[in-house]
Design a protein around this nucleic acid. Structure first.
Length: 285
DNA sequence: CACTTGACCTGTCCGC
DNA sequence: TGCGGACAGGTCAAGT
């Protein structure tokens, strides 16, 4: 679920809702999901919420930062209500699907409670995700490539970084976070489609025009993803528990055996780098 | 060294 | 209806 557009969507929501709130309690239901001493954050005020690659950061008083990585199935949901608390309240009720994501559920791993009584839930079905307490300014890997939605990300930088993986399929290479940060499987597929490049093309076989198209394809697919509130295969919800709808707009991801939205050719699915990869054999050559 | 596979976990969906 | 297997947004470590 969470690639750059999804984490960005959550960031925007949390900036709006949580800056200035004071943490009054942290309940860690799954110890493996939380690294650090939760007590250190008690009575600390949230100062800033930011994103780098797919990592979300929350700066708190005392020069500490909470880092979140949602991996495959993580969710971060802010609930302003002081009443939605014990999951037992909902047993036997008829919650909507969105509510089911929102409330504490069997996948809730960490619950933050704020001094105004509101809550932030970290839900994560597969427990791959994590929360870490680090010192301000620490904890982000130094190997991360450029942020694709800033001016530091030029097509020349993309070309230089990709050429470290000359014989790799281009779609696999753009998922390497040291090449460009934040692109995951969904947007890698969409970016290749937008660039009209077959995802299995080796990096060394691309020409400059294709590097330029790939560069703009990455930016376009990520930007569209944010505009549609992120993707939603099954798990993604924003900071208020709402689903994103980018996949309704996807050209190739998840559309194998369906007709290409541009030319009608049947979309194919292959495995590249161990991941499902989708492309239109007519549009992408 | 470059690249692929397996592991981490849990759930869902599909075919038989 | 049940059951086994494949697969799922990410990233490491281990293996080839």
């Amino acid at each position: 679920m969470p690639e750059l557009p999804e984490v960005e969507t959550i960031k925007l929501g949390l900036q709006k809702k949580t800056i200035g709130l004071t943490i009054s309690n942290i309940e860690v239901l799954s110890p493996k999901s939380f690294i650090g001493k939760a007590k250190d954050l008690k009575n600390k005020k949230i100062q800033q919420v930011w994103r780098r690659a797919k990592i979300l950061g929350i700066d708190v008083e005392g020069r500490m930062t909470l880092l979140f990585h949602l991996k495959m199935t993580g969710q971060l949901i802010y609930n302003p209500s002081t009443r939605l608390r014990a999951s037992s309240r909902f047993i036997g009720g008829h919650p909507t699907p969105d509510m089911r994501d929102k409330m504490p559920n069997s996948h809730t791993r960490v619950i933050f409670t704020f001094s105004d009584g509101s809550h932030l839930y970290f839900n994560d079905q597969r427990k791959f995700g994590w929360i870490k307490i680090v010192k301000f300014g620490e904890g982000i890997p130094g190997t991360l490539g450029p942020e694709p939605l800033t001016k530091e990300f030029s097509w020349q930088i993309l070309k230089t970084n990709l050429l470290r993986h000359k014989s790799m399929p281009v779609k696999v290479a753009i998922m390497d976070q040291s090449v460009v940060s934040g692109v995951g499987n969904i947007y890698a597929n969409e970016a290749c489609f937008d660039a009209k490049i077959d995802p299995k093309t080796k990096v060394k076989d691309l020409d400059d025009l294709q590097f330029k198209k790939l560069h703009s394809g990455i930016i376009k697919s990520l930007t569209d993803g944010i505009a549609h509130g992120g993707s939603s295969r099954a798990h993604f919800v924003d900071a208020e528990g709402r689903k994103g709808y980018f996949l309704d707009y996807a050209f190739v991801y998840g559309r194998d055996r369906k007709p290409c939205k541009k030319c009608g050719t049947t979309i194919e699915k292959i495995i590249l780098g161990g991941r499902g990869s989708y492309f239109c054999p007519t549009c992408q050559q």
